[in-house]
Amino acid sequence: MRRRLHTRILGLSGRLLVGLILAFLVLPAFVVTLAAFNDRAILSFPPAGYSTRWFARALTYRDFRIGLWNSLVVTAWASTLALAVGTGFAIALKRYVFRLKGGLEGVLLSPLIVPHFTIGLGLLVLATGIGAARGFAVVVLTHVIVVLPFVIRSVYISLQNIDERLELAAASLGARPGRVLGTITLPLLAPGLFSGWLFAAILSFNEFTASLFVTGQATQTLPVAMYGYVREFADPTLAAVSVIYIAVTAALLTVANTFLGLGKVLNVEQGR
């Protein structure tokens, strides 16, 4: 009897712990979302009255509009370039044996270890040196460097899940290497490529630290514009932008899930 009570208490507290952890995961988004609807012109929680006027301000504020556009341009370029470059490197790492392979792998994954502000600072110094500072090219390059390791990982894992015998079978049936790539490898790799691109896009869209160094007034991305805003104002506009951010990212993931299944996109399940 006592033992049963014990197990019940243990079971209950276990569930409580899991519930608390999950609550903490969504807590920041929850607080910010509520704050965005605060009627008063101050970032506070809990809100005193409800209003959507901060959303209107967020969408019309000039710096945010420019920042959003810049972010979309930079993200599109950076994630696409990173996908192309990363796919090439992933195939090289997976399929070929060559000298200094370990070294190449280390270099390619090094942006994971190097702090983003170091990357930003380094590129800023370099770009100033060659007179290309604060241009879009430098911002895109910065983002490519930051997201490349994630693209390579994603594509590499997808490649690992392709049975090379499928390609051998295709070759034995008369398919030249180019046709094997087009009819077997790429179609089977497509979910991996898409997930790699999606990761890159989300990371790039959210990148702040490195961007702070390499962007200028004309090229500042949305996170940088938000940082600039919060240094001057303390009204809930920033919270409203955050909510828009969350909504856009969630929409992207939902689309991905609808067309491909989240498991595939996130490389969680790799059943064939």
Partner: peptide, 15 residues
């Protein structure tokens, strides 16, 4: 190369 040899192959996992 394999693609010009005109051989048929059946793998253990069928591929």
């Amino acid at each position: 190369p394999a693609y010009e040899r005109e051989i048929g192959i059946v793998f253990q996992n069928y591929a």
